[in-house]
Simulated assay, not measured.
Amino acid sequence: MNDVGGNDMRYSYPVTAEIEISGRPPFGAVLRHRPGTVLVGESGGAFGLVPAGRAPRHVTAVAEVSLRVQTVVVTRPLPLSPDHVVVFAFGCRVNDPVLLLRFGCWDVEPVLARYLREDPVLDGLLESAGPAPGGRAWKEVAAHARRRDRFQPPFVPGMTCNLSFVELDHRPRAEPEPAEPEPAKTPQDYIWDE
C-alpha cells in the first residue's frame, strides 16, 4: 500500500501515510485524506492539525492519522513450546492525534510489545505455561494480562489502548531446509586399520 505521495508506507497504525513537503505547494493544491482520518502537519518539531480541503502552509511534513478503533495484535513466544505463541489483541483508539505525534508514536505495535516485554510477572507465568490452553498456568497468564490492563493499561499519550483478548495460537516452525547430500564415498575416503 502506498501513501498519498506514492511512497511505501512505513507505519501501520495510527499513522497510515506520511508525505514530506519541500518548498511551497502549487497554487490551489490541497491535501485530501481518507474518511476516518485527519491530517497532522509538522514544522520544526511542532505539530498541528491541517484543515481539510486547504493547502498546508509552513509545514515540512504531513501525516495521515487514523481515528478509527483498530485492533493491534502483539505476540509473545511460549518458552516451553516453541511452536506456540500467546496472542494479545488490543483495541486502540486515537483521542488526540497532535499529542500522539508530539510524543513520537507513529506505530503503536512496538509500544505495546514493550509493555508486554517489560512485565516480569508475565515473563514468569509464560515460563511455566504449557501449550494446553485449559491448564492452570495458562489461565493465570490470561488473568494477569487482564488484571494488569485494568489497573495499569499501556501508556500512550493521545491514545487509549485496552486489552481485547488473549489466546494461545499454534504456529509451526518453518521446515528446515534439506541438507545437501554428502558425495558418495570412494575406497580412498576410508582409512583401514591394519
Results as ranks from 00 to 15, higher is better:
Pro82Trp: 04
Gly134Ser: 15
Ala55Gln: 14
Thr71Ile: 06
Trp106Glu: 02
Phe103Leu: 00
Val98Cys: 09
Phe90Glu: 01
Cys105Val: 15
Ser66Ile: 12
Glu118Ser: 10
Arg146Ile: 06
Leu126Gly: 10
Ala143Val: 06
Val65Ser: 08
Pro133Thr: 13
Gln70Met: 14
Leu67Trp: 03
Asn95His: 10
Glu109Pro: 00
Leu78Tyr: 12
Pro82Glu: 03
Val65His: 09
Phe90Gly: 00
Thr60Asp: 15
Leu116Lys: 13
Leu99Arg: 13
Glu127Asn: 12
Ala63Gly: 02
Leu101Ala: 00
Arg68Glu: 11
Glu127Val: 10
Arg136Phe: 05
Arg93Cys: 13
Pro110Ser: 05
Ser66Asp: 13
Leu100Ile: 03
Glu64Gly: 11
Glu127Ala: 14
Arg150Trp: 09
Gly135Arg: 05
Gly130Arg: 14
Gly104Pro: 03
Phe88Thr: 02
Tyr115Pro: 03
Ser128Glu: 15
Gln70Leu: 07
Phe88Asn: 05
Ser128Val: 15
Ala113Gly: 02
Thr75Pro: 01
Gly104Met: 01
Leu78Gly: 05
Pro131Gln: 13
Arg57Trp: 05
Gln70Tyr: 12
Leu67Tyr: 06
Trp106Thr: 04
Arg146Cys: 12
Thr75Trp: 03
Gly130Cys: 07
Ala137Gly: 07
Glu118Pro: 02
Ala145Arg: 09
Val111Gly: 00
His84Gln: 05
Val73Lys: 04
Leu101Glu: 01
Trp106Phe: 13
Gly130Lys: 08
Asp119His: 07
Lys139Gly: 14
Ala63Glu: 06
Phe151Gln: 12
Leu125Phe: 02
Leu80His: 02
Leu126Thr: 05
Ala129His: 04
Arg93Asn: 10
Gly91Asp: 10
Glu140Val: 01
Ala142Arg: 11
Val73Arg: 09
Arg148Thr: 11
Cys105Pro: 01
Phe103Ile: 00
Val111Lys: 09
Arg150Ser: 12
Ser66Gln: 11
Pro79Thr: 08
Arg102Phe: 11
Val62Pro: 06
Ala63Gln: 09
Ala145Ser: 15
Pro56Met: 08
Ala137Asn: 11
Val141Glu: 08
Val87Gly: 01
His144Cys: 07
Leu101Arg: 00
Ser81Asp: 13
Val65Ile: 10
Val141His: 01
Arg68Thr: 09
Val72Leu: 07
Leu67Ser: 09
Leu100Pro: 01
Leu126Ile: 07
Thr75Asp: 10
Leu99Gln: 12
Arg117Gln: 15
Gly91Ile: 00
Arg114Gln: 11
Gln70Asp: 13
Ala142Gln: 10
Leu80Phe: 02
Arg68Pro: 00
Leu122Lys: 10
Arg146Met: 14
Glu64Ile: 12
Arg147Lys: 10
Val111Ser: 06
Glu109Tyr: 00
Pro56Tyr: 05
Val72Pro: 04
